[in-house]
């Protein structure tokens, strides 16, 4: 586990690298606003832990492991900034800096999905690192994503033939607008369709594609 401070250093190294500069003790001390001596100490520590490589008086380079972590934190930081921005906040940087160490990968991914997988941070226009999974797959909206009370339009199903025939008969056809009534966590979704209510199991609901409507 890395401390918050160590994470901040990795993030700073990543940020310096992004602006096509060579991260070194001096640039780090400027960015972090601390003495070169304490920067040196931290760099040594991170070097020993195997996150970066640092030749004496040379540039700092990430190890593959270190790069992963730095990217992950930067991703969380910029996603949080985007999210706070979306919520109408103006000064988002400092708050995102504090939140980024506490948020889980799953929640960060959920924010990413919620914002429609944004490419750039609205704050400074810098790129938001991707998580590596297929964005298209991730952004697909299924019935399980709908908040109870909302209406959505069915766009298609990805389930087996028999199940999709059953769904058709119950009124769940492409183009149909359905209203989600309620949902049990990890359990079925109840929808209102053609004047009747039906419950659809979790596994099936994940295969029913929907889009928002009005």
């Amino acid at each position: 586990m890395l401390s918050e401070n160590e994470e901040e250093y990795l993030e700073a190294i990543y940020a310096i690298g992004e602006s096509y500069e060579k991260p070194g003790i001096r640039s780090l001390s400027e960015v972090m606003g601390v003495s070169k001596a304490s920067v040196s100490e931290m760099v040594k520590k991170l070097n020993e832990k195997g996150y970066i490589r640092h030749e004496r008086y040379g540039a700092i380079v990430f190890t593959p492991e270190g790069l992963d972590i730095a990217r992950g934190i930067k991703r969380k930081h910029r996603l949080l900034e985007s999210f706070l921005y979306f919520l109408g906040k103006k000064e988002v940087h400092d708050e995102a800096c504090r939140l980024e160490h506490g948020i889980s990968d799953e929640s960060a991914d959920a924010i990413c999905r919620f914002l429609g997988s944004p490419d750039r941070c609205p704050d400074d226009g810098r790129a938001i690192p991707k998580c590596g999974k297929d964005c298209h797959e991730c952004l697909k909206k299924t019935l399980t994503w709908v908040i109870p009370g909302k209406k959505v339009r069915i766009t298609g199903t990805e389930c087996g033939r028999k199940a999709s025939m059953r769904l058709n008969e119950m009124g769940v056809v492409a183009g149909e607008v359905v209203k989600v009534i309620s949902r049990v966590p990890h359990g079925p979704v109840e929808v209102e369709v053609k004047g009747t209510r039906i419950a659809i199991g979790d596994g099936l609901a994940k295969k029913i594609l929907v889009e928002e409507c009005e």
Partner: peptide
């Protein structure tokens, strides 16, 4: 037989 997820009417 083939397992199939739940599709059940919620009667009034």
């Amino acid at each position: 037989g083939e397992p199939m997820g739940l599709i059940m009417e919620m009667p009034r």
